[in-house]
Design a protein around this nucleic acid. Structure first.
Lengths: 153, 153
DNA sequence: GATTATAGTTAGCTATGCTAACTAATTTAC
DNA sequence: GTAAATTAGTTAGCATAGCTAACTATAATC
């Protein structure tokens, strides 16, 4: 019993240390990558909502808000901005006139992919200092992390 | 030559895929963790600047701005907010009266550590779904990533 | 048909980002 | 040793993004 207790305490300790490292690394990583979002004149919240539409398909405003963990009034303004820039199109749901169908336009998809490619190439270029093994481990770890995020409580 | 070329092309391909995963994971991770900051009544930019002061020691406004990759007017307002909440103290540099010496107060350090612990414990709790091996790999990967960030170009 | 619930919007607050233009202090040039 | 240039930070003004509270419009329920 004492053994089990000690083991799980150690595991928790390592979880805490790892969580701390991940937290710090994620903050600093995104801060670096943010510098690549040049003069797109589209803010980060708009880009992030657009990415949901591009990668997960059309959504209602409420679905977008919950995907982005934001309240509806906030998403309402984000959608208004994207619409003004013609990066999305909005129509009424035929079944329920309260709902909106929001979809990315071709222009929106192009803009997103371009910015995303810029960020990712910038990061990939900086991963070049790693060995092949380290890179492979990083890929495995990223997959673990994605699983953790999918199963989040 | 052809062999080398092909190898480095494959390496670049894996770097791109890994970069993409990391990018996505970092975004979603921080979005989750952000939900733990709600009650602190101190915004994310203020918390982040405060963390620099707590972990790296006193700084001038310009140093803080560049550490946070933000322009001086923005940091000026962030500092004003922290000062209003008495989380930092500001004094003039005795050598150069243009400069400010900004340091965290005990209250600031306490608030930061508390919020940080909340975030990290939340993340650590969700890492519990990983096996010990996966957790260990994640820790190694986080260290690699931190090295990449330190050597960033 | 009246009430209740749901989807989004509007109004108004705060925080955070920017640039341009300013003040004040220090350094450099002559 | 003063005038000019540089440096540190602030102020003003604008845009984006987050929130709550209160609203409109549609749908579902009783």
């Amino acid at each position: 019993m004492a053994k089990v207790k000690q083991d799980s305490a150690q595991l928790w300790g390592q979880s805490l240390r790892t969580a701390d490292q991940l937290h710090s690394a994620a903050i600093h990583l995104l801060r670096r990558l943010r510098t690549q979002d040049l003069r797109s004149s589209v803010g980060p919240a708009q880009l992030s909502a657009l990415s949901v539409l591009v990668f997960a398909g059309p959504r209602t405003l409420g679905e977008l808000a919950s995907a982005e963990q934001v309240k509806p009034p906030t998403m309402s303004r984000i959608v208004a901005g994207l619409k003004r820039s013609r990066l999305i199109e909005v129509s009424r749901d035929t079944e329920d006139a309260r709902r909106m169908q929001i979809r990315a336009t071709a222009k929106g998809a192009r803009l997103l992919q371009k910015g995303r490619r810029r960020r990712i190439e910038y990061l990939a270029a900086n991963l070049a200092s790693l060995t092949g093994d380290e890179l492979a481990q990083l890929a495995i770890a990223a997959a673990s992390l994605e699983r953790v995020l999918r199963n989040w409580t």
